[in-house]
């Protein structure tokens, strides 16, 4: 455990040390929320309080991007040789996998925390909501990281194919979901596809956590179960699959 925490601290310092990148993400979020969000909320008049809805959607997109990055970083680490060094250290593979996930979560907290606090402060939400909404975002993040890391076996064959899959998945998962529009306000065909997307459950769970008053949000209990199930299953698959791929067992 001490070794895992030591590695976690070392890696987090390196990532968070890139302050300009963190500030850029906050600035980009602020621009989208305060400029584009204002404009689009004037166009979408049928959804009540859409500006707030849009803001939480931005948080989910940001979580998705950071979690995707964490998975991609894992793959890049393998290509760059950093992973090989870590694998040679006296650390259990399971602990290493857990450390990678924890690092993604810590970076998520650092980069999403301030925008989340800002949105909740603007809307006057109580402090407890910060805790619950951050928990939802992190649970979603764990699931997304699990998917991305599990897919890393593709990257060991071809990084280009991996990049294409990740880009395609990002486009599909974000658009066919309730991240930007509520389920009850979108056409049936679109809504039916979105119901099969785990991000829809995560997005609706976040809106329930921050008390957004939109009709047709999915049941929070069901959403919580889906988000947790996706997180646990993808991380379990990743934990079982990835060490075997890294150590060359799958390729033999």
């Amino acid at each position: 455990m001490r070794e895992m925490l030591s590695l976690l601290w070392f890696e987090v310092k390196e990532e968070v040390g890139a302050v300009h990148w963190t500030v850029y993400q906050w600035a980009f979020f602020a621009f989208q929320y305060f400029v584009y969000g204002q404009l689009v909320s004037k166009l979408v008049v049928s959804v009540p309080n859409y500006y707030f809805y849009y803001g939480t959607g931005l948080l989910i997109i940001m979580t998705f991007n950071i979690s995707t990055w964490a998975g991609r970083r894992f793959v890049e680490g393998a290509h760059e040789g950093r992973l090989r060094y870590i694998l040679s250290l006296p650390l259990r593979r399971g602990e290493f996998f857990l450390e990678q996930v924890l690092m993604g979560l810590v970076v998520n907290v650092v980069r999403i925390g301030p925008p989340l606090v800002m949105i909740l402060w603007i809307t006057g939400a109580p402090a407890l909501v910060l805790l619950t909404s951050m928990t939802v975002l992190l649970a979603m993040s764990a699931g997304i990281m699990g998917i991305m890391i599990s897919l890393s076996f593709v990257a060991f064959k071809s990084f280009d194919i991996y990049s294409a899959i990740v880009a395609g998945m990002s486009a599909i998962l974000i658009r066919f979901s309730t991240i930007l529009y509520p389920l009850s306000y979108i056409p049936n065909a679109y809504a039916n596809i979105s119901r099969g997307n785990p991000l829809t459950y995560g997005a609706d769970l976040l809106r329930s956590a921050v008390n957004i008053d939109v009709s047709g949000l999915l049941n929070p209990g069901l959403s919580a179960i889906v988000v947790l199930a996706v997180g646990v299953s993808t991380l379990t698959i990743g934990m079982a699959l990835v060490p075997r791929v890294l150590e060359g067992v799958k390729s033999s």
Binding site: R84, Y85, S88
Partner: peptide, 26 residues
């Protein structure tokens, strides 16, 4: 312990931090 053929690593860390991290691991 192994010293790899190609020196790759933690791009933004300093040599003193890298060795210090390595030492703490052991």
């Amino acid at each position: 312990g192994i010293s790899f053929q190609e020196p790759r690593g933690f791009w933004r860390h300093k040599p003193s931090h890298i060795l210090s991290f390595h030492a703490s691991f052991y």
